[in-house]
Amino acid sequence: MELKRLMHFLAVLGLFWSATSGSVLAQQAEVVLDKTENECRLFNMHTGVHPNNGNGPTKVDVSIIVADFLGVNDVDQQMDVDLFVTYTWLDSRLDNYDGCRLGKTEVWFPRIALLNSSNLRALNQNALNQVSVGEGGQVYYQQRYTGDVLSYHELHRFPFDKHGFKIQFATHLTDAANVVLTANAEKTWISDKLNIEGWNVSGVEIAAGTSRVHKSGEDLSTITLTINADRNPDYYLYRVMLLLMFVVFMSWVIFWIPPSRFEFQIGLGATSMLTSIAFNLSVANDLPELGYLTILDKALIWAIFLIFLSIVEALVTGLLVIKDRETSAVTLDRASRLVFPILLFGGWYLIVQLS
C-alpha cells in the first residue's frame, strides 16, 4: 500500500511539474500572464450578466485529464480518481485583459456541478478562485480534483465484467437556458501510468449531452467523462475458482471408494460441502449486497449443488449395497466419474455464456 501511494505521488508530481512548467498549461490555455495588478483591475463588470447576454447561450468548452485512476470499490460502488478539469469560454468584455489573472468573483463564471455523489477535493487552492484571460477575451479555468466518486456499476458478469465508469458534470438549474457545455476530446486524455490493480483501463471518452430535470422540465447541459475498463479475473480464477475446483474434485473421491464404505463416503461429501460453503461466505465479503446473482455466485452455487449430488449418489449406492445390488452400485460410481466432470465444466461454461 505504501509503495502504491509513493508511485502515485511521483506520477502526479511529474504531471503537476509539467503543468506548472508550461507543457500541460500550454495545451490547455496558452496564456501568458504578463500584466501588472493595476493593468488587470476591472471596472463596472456585471458578473451576473452572461457574456452572450441576449445573443444565445454561452458555450463553455470542457476538457479533462485523468492523471490517475487509483481503484474501484465494488462494495461501496466508488472509484478513486485524480482529475485535472479545464473550463474555457469567451467573454468579449475582457478583450483588453489578456495576460491577466482575475478572481472568479470579479468576472462571470459558469456554475457547473458534479452529478455523481462524491468526496472530491480541490487541491490547487491558489487556482481555485482565479481564472486566466487570453487573447480576445478567452477565459480559462483549471482545477485539480482528487477523491472518491460513486460509480453506479452493475456486477452481473463479475468477475468477467467490463465497465464504462461515468463521471458527469452539469450546468446549474438557473443557467439551463444560458450555458451550453461542449466537449473537447482532443485535450481529454488519461495518463499512461495508472496505479490501479485488478483492472485493465483501455481509455477515456468525453461527450456533451443533456439531462432533463423532471420537476421543472428543463434540460441541463451536461458533460460525461467515461473511463473504459475491464476487470482482470485472474485473482478470482486462481484464488477462488481453482481452490473450489479442488474441493469439488475431493468430493468425487466418493466415486472411487467401494460402495460398501458409504459411511466414509458421506463424511467426505459433508466435509466438501462445508468447505465450499465457507468459500462462498469469504467471497461474499468482497461484494455488495446485491439483488441479483453474479457469474461467480452462480458458479459457486452450481459447484455446491454438484457436491450435494455426490452425497446423494453415495446414499443411493449405499442403499444398493444393502439390497445386495453391489454390481449396480459399482456401475453407478463408474458412470458418475464421467458425468460429474461434464456437469461441472459444462454448467460453468453455460453460466458464463448466458449471463
Rank of each mutant, 00 (worst) to 15 (best):
K4V: 00
R5L: 14
W17V: 03
A19P: 11
Q27R: 13
Q28C: 03
Q28K: 08
Q28F: 01
A29Y: 04
V32D: 06
E39Q: 14
L42T: 03
F43T: 14
H46Q: 14
H46W: 09
N53C: 05
K59T: 15
K59V: 13
I64S: 00
D76Y: 09
V81Y: 02
D82N: 09
L83T: 01
V85D: 05
R101F: 07
T105K: 13
I112R: 00
A113S: 07
N119Y: 06
N119I: 11
N119W: 11
L120E: 06
Q125K: 13
N126E: 08
N126K: 15
L128N: 09
N129E: 07
N129D: 11
V133C: 10
V133G: 00
E135R: 13
L150V: 10
L150W: 07
H153T: 06
H156F: 15
G164P: 06
I167P: 03
A185H: 12
T188H: 02
S191K: 12
D192N: 11
L194E: 07
L194W: 07
L194S: 04
S202L: 02
S221T: 13
L225T: 01
L225R: 04
L225W: 04
F246G: 00
F246W: 10
F246R: 03
F246Y: 15
V248I: 03
V253H: 06
S260T: 12
E263D: 07
Q265T: 01
L268G: 00
N280F: 00
L287M: 13
L290E: 00
L293C: 08
A299W: 08
I301L: 10
F305L: 12
F308L: 08
L309H: 11
L319R: 04
L320E: 12
K323M: 09
D324P: 05
E326N: 09
A329D: 01
V339P: 03
L344W: 04
L344A: 06
G347I: 08
I351K: 03
V352A: 06
